[in-house]
Design a protein around this nucleic acid. Structure first.
Lengths: 154, 154
DNA sequence: ATACATTGTGGGTAGTTGTGGGTAATAATC
DNA sequence: GATTATTACCCACAACTACCCACAATGTAT
């Protein structure tokens, strides 16, 4: 029995094998609702990582994109950039998904890959890259962090 | 019969066993409402300790995080840092929860662990660390303490 | 004072989970 | 159309986790 449906939290150091497969943590699979099935959309993250959305969640993003008129140049470019690298995948009987070569290259993924829950989506990181991104953020964003932390009572 | 629902007070020196399990004090379990069941979210504390939230309390934090758009770099970073070390756990029939190796390392927990009530959440400490943190605070924060004491009539 | 229930602690066992690799089916290339 | 490359499916195994039972210590009720 799970309480938090569709909520991904925690980090897991898993291996990306020779065939480009990574395991979806059991804790993540267990919070997926029936209609999410085993379908995911994987795409480029806005940071140097791979984003993995449950298909149903991605669906709602697509619905938003549909509303953007192609008359606007910014809209066209926004739609293009978000959809361009997205592909639909399913996990196998062992619970793994295959990451496409161009995404592996983009996120510079090696054998040691870090799976990070991001509430409504999952990120796959090269641990070293996440480390540097983390440190950069600590220096630059400290003030805004405090602001956010004030709004959200931890 | 309980008076204060969901209010954790007091401290308990319990043992973290070889399997990484700690007991949730009976006094705390008795204070949990039905919808909290036996689910908790454990994560890194802002001090060097482990924070344990009743699942329902954590839920409201997640709801806030969901509102933050991933288009903003700061938002991504904030969501990641708050969710990254969090994991949903349930207590077993003996009333214990399993603390993940990550968190044990972070809070430097040994066999002797101190469970501390923090009103809406629970902290797990290495007793020695709490001691030093306490003393530091007494030296540095005396002035601000007085300010708070003005707001809260003890 | 004694019997009973509750609470904290330890450990065994069966099932689950993560990982690697072999084989067959499908797709792509020449 | 034949050959190669890629993908999906399957099996196997080790490591880990969750569940269960046991027991001692403490607290409570009769």
């Amino acid at each position: 029995m799970t309480i938090n449906q569709n909520t991904f939290t925690g980090e897991f150091l898993y291996s990306l094998d020779a065939k480009g497969r990574v395991n979806i943590p059991a804790k993540f699979r267990n919070v997926l609702t029936a209609d999410n099935e085993q379908s995911f959309v994987i795409t480029r993250g806005m940071d140097l990582c791979v984003w993995v959305y449950p298909a149903k969640v991605w669906q709602s993003i697509e619905d938003e994109l549909r509303k953007l008129s192609s008359l606007s140049r910014i809209n066209r470019s926004f739609v293009r950039s978000t959809v361009r690298y997205a592909s639909l995948v399913q996990y196998d009987k062992q619970g793994r998904i295959a990451v496409t070569p161009n995404l592996i290259e983009y996120a510079q993924l090696g054998k040691e890959s870090l799976i990070v829950g991001m509430v409504n989506k999952i990120e796959i990181w090269n641990p070293k890259l996440l480390d540097t991104v983390d440190k950069e953020s600590q220096n630059i964003d400290a003030a805004q962090f405090d602001e956010l932390a004030d709004q959200i009572i931890l």
